[in-house]
Design a protein around this nucleic acid. Structure first.
Lengths: 240, 240
DNA sequence: CCTACCGATCGGTAGG
DNA sequence: CCTACCGATCGGTAGG
């Protein structure tokens, strides 16, 4: 009845999905009584939160590919292999599910970008590595897509909280851009927004049969890095 | 019954909306018989297509601000001041309405960008003027927003036709970018996609209480024009 | 262009 | 986590 919130999210996948679908089929095909169907469920509830994790995972994927408004609780439930009402045992509402998708996605994305940066030494190389990591997460993973893709279609009530979390991620780029030597006349704010815009917009036109995300990211980044290629680091003052 | 399609879209606004709402109120408050309500309609049907134009206009605005999936036929009908079913007298389906919004919006946008370009002489000035016009249409007008904003939420059936129309608009920028002197190592494809991405992404973060669209467009464009500022037109070959 | 209606789908819930 | 259900909303239509 009540929904236990705030559980820690565990990892680990199982075959429960398959089994649960079989149960549904059984019920539909032979009209078995509710009691028999319930009794048919194996009692291997060893990892109590793997189902919550499954919901979170599939919701991330679906929100990322179709958008929040175009994804129904029924879509998510059937992807996980359970009935629509059961989703509400794990999440209080569709909005709460979105909030959880956001939190997990932001955390994972920040970690991925930080990991990609750490080996690089120069500011421009660090920014480029971040851009490549960003676009890979966006196009291949689905976690960032759920967060960044459709800011307009999200429920107004939760929008402020979502924007705040998105800002946490953008702060990483704000810091990286601050370290870089920008040409005269280019403000760091517009530069960051233009770079992220160029990368995020790839969601609209990218096709999987084209160049891989890393190549696309580097081609796009070259547009922004040009100044640096022309003027070696630190030589900004020498300009005409 | 049948829907007369392909009528020319006329301009001109009237007070019909107000009146139509009054009719609805009358009916709800006093339960007037259908015959009386119909008879109460003034017979000034001089411009037979102004209602179709009204629908198109409000649909453009709503698709642009909320997106296609988040806008219902009922929303559009009540904005125009008629009942939901009546929309289908003018358009065969919601998808057909979207197609019409596209066609009209693309036409208007191409015209606006061409008009903004015509006075400018150098390739970089022409491209900048196009960028400014583009962002103004996108943020203030609503016509371009309906077209460009949510490619993901549009119905799959019509998507190909929509992409084709969008390409007609992008072709204008393809031509302008081709005329511009790009720095070595920068491909014109990624350059165009990065520029349009940077501009279009402003839909996500732009707030009306900030700088006006023209200023935002110029700030963003400066990021892409830097190379040009450094190297005067035609001096590309002189580089180290 | 309105009336009156349809089937489908949606987020969500009580009770077990 | 399932059963069985609710009210709301949606795109669309027959008939006038």
């Amino acid at each position: 009845m009540a929904c236990p919130q705030g559980r820690p999210s565990l990892h680990g996948s199982r075959q429960r999905v398959q089994r649960s679908i079989n149960v549904i089929f059984t019920k539909r095909l032979f009209g078995g009584s509710p009691t028999r169907v319930t009794a048919a469920l194996p009692l291997d509830s060893t990892k109590p939160d793997s189902r919550r994790h499954d919901i979170l995972h599939h919701a991330t994927q679906l929100f990322g590919s179709r958008g929040y408004g175009q994804t129904s609780i029924r879509d998510i439930a059937s992807a996980v292999g359970m009935l629509p009402g059961s989703v509400y045992y794990h999440f209080a509402s569709k909005e709460a599910l979105l909030a959880a998708v956001y939190t997990e996605g932001i955390e994972r994305s920040i970690a991925a970008v930080e990991a990609a940066i750490v080996a690089k030494t120069t500011p421009w190389d660090r920014l480029e590595a971040a851009a490549v990591a960003h676009l890979s997460l966006l196009l291949a993973d689905g976690a960032l897509a759920a967060i960044i893709a459709d800011g307009r279609n999200q429920p107004i009530a939760a929008r402020d909280a979502l924007v705040q979390q998105r800002n946490r991620y953008e702060a990483v780029f704000r810091r990286l851009v601050a370290d870089v030597d920008l040409p005269p006349g280019v403000q760091s704010g517009p530069f960051r927004l233009a770079l992220l815009g160029a990368l995020n917009w790839a969601l609209t036109w990218y096709r999987p049969d084209g160049d891989p995300p890393e190549v696309v990211a580097r081609d796009l980044f070259a547009v922004f890095r040009t100044n640096q290629t022309t003027y070696p680091l630190g030589s900004r003052e020498i300009q005409p």
